[in-house]
Design a protein around this nucleic acid. Sequence first.
DNA 1: CCAGACGTTGTT
DNA 2: GTCTGG
DNA 3: CCAGACGTTGTT
DNA 4: GTCTGG
Length: 228
Amino acid sequence: MCGRNSLFTEQDDLEDRFGAEVVADGSYRPRHNIAPGDDLHIITNEASDEIARYHWSLIPFWANEPEGGMINARSENAGEKRVFERAWNSRPCLVLSSGLYEWRSTNGGSKQPFQIHREDDPAFAMAGLWDVWEGEDETISCVTILTTEPNDLMNSIHDRMPVVLPQDAESDWLAADPDTRKELCQPYPKGDLDAYEISTRVNNPGNDDPQVIEPLDHEQSGLGEFSS
DNA sequence: CCAGACGTTGTT
DNA sequence: GTCTGG
DNA sequence: CCAGACGTTGTT
DNA sequence: GTCTGG
């Protein structure tokens, strides 16, 4: 699945990469630790030239209270679920990322976090769904990230992964009909994703700084002390 | 008909 | 154990 | 996703 | 809003 994200690409590079501009109230700043409940930067099908901020946790438009919400949706059946029906049918979006985080469970119960990104790409896009919840005196623009089976790289880490779109499928994802979009929800089909181990510093969402993405150094961690 | 749910993930 | 907050 | 809280009463 | 369960 995908429960933590980052977006630290320089704004100019990000805008060039997606051919879109951060909207006036997008208040873009590099982020290294974006948790559910924070804002994600996305491009919607209704404004494919804009990068906007949406609350990460989809609240169905018909909900009475803006509580709970969905941080992920299974792409295999999202179109058949009531909570996602409207968003699936008409509200696809691109969720921008410089790198996502996944945790690998180990036998001892501890978890090893990984940073996953696309080689030679300043940012990539995950498939998402957006909607707008309107209350009496509150409006929440919100988003969820679609998940699927892991590809070969991710399989060693986790049993789910977000739908990562090949770059040439990004515009199709926004423009296609629901049946065609479902076909795009595949385990990432190319070999250019890379994963590396990072410190458990990422576990605490308060640690939102470049240190989070530094590769884990086994020598410094002491594991290499005995081999020399 | 009305009432009540509507979801994912991981873990036990 | 389970929910809320980040 | 993980981290951290999880409660009441009365008093300041 | 829309489906399922009673």
